[in-house]
Amino acid sequence: MNRRKFLIGAGSLAAGSAAAMGTGAFSTVEADRTVSVNVASDSQALLALDAKTENENSAYAKEQSTGAITVDISDSNNSGFDGEDPNGVNPNATTRIFDIFTIQNQGTQPAAVWVPPESVSSSTGDDVTDGTGFYIDPQATDRPNGSYSGTQYDGATSSNGEISLTGIYDGPQTYIDNISGAEWNDFTLNTGQSFDFGVWINSDDNGFSGDISMTLKAAAVDSVGNQPDTL
């Protein structure tokens, strides 16, 4: 495609623009440069997702062979009390499972970490973020920054510094704007800092069985508590 342009350029040079030759016209330049990329498992990533034995509910976390972490609250792998074999959460109930794995900032800058609400989707096609029927919301607990401890869903009181990583499906900025005491600090991890990932699950009488996927987003901030440039 550029070959043609190049020939034309050469033609007009031959026609006598020696001046252009001396000053450095070029028609196309392609420069190959090397980029080394290291891909690591979630536990070794710059934004590390790591389920360790000290995570109280790490039994619900699994590191896949691809290195990606997943959470499983359906399977019979979650051995319960006295060898019982639980297969899921209760119907018509609110279940909060905190501290499944740790999210740690292993990068070089402080970063705000959250879950964009639009990224939460279900393999069943159900809207699981509408706050009615069956819904699920990712939570952070044991946060190192911020002091927010206001109410969560259904008037329940925050415990363990619990905060909704989706900003209760509004995104952190709207959440911060609308809820007294909430601030970007609540979502921020300085270099080396971590908080724990958990889920809030509300179930109704209709059963649910499916996979929920969501995106964890980390955006660098210039200093702890600032709003990130990228939302």
Binding site: D32, V37, V39
Partner: peptide, 16 residues
């Protein structure tokens, strides 16, 4: 991508 190091080549192109 697998968990490993990759040596990639990026071509930077300038077209008049």
């Amino acid at each position: 991508a697998e968990i490993q190091g990759f040596d990639e080549t990026l071509t930077i192109v300038a077209d008049a």
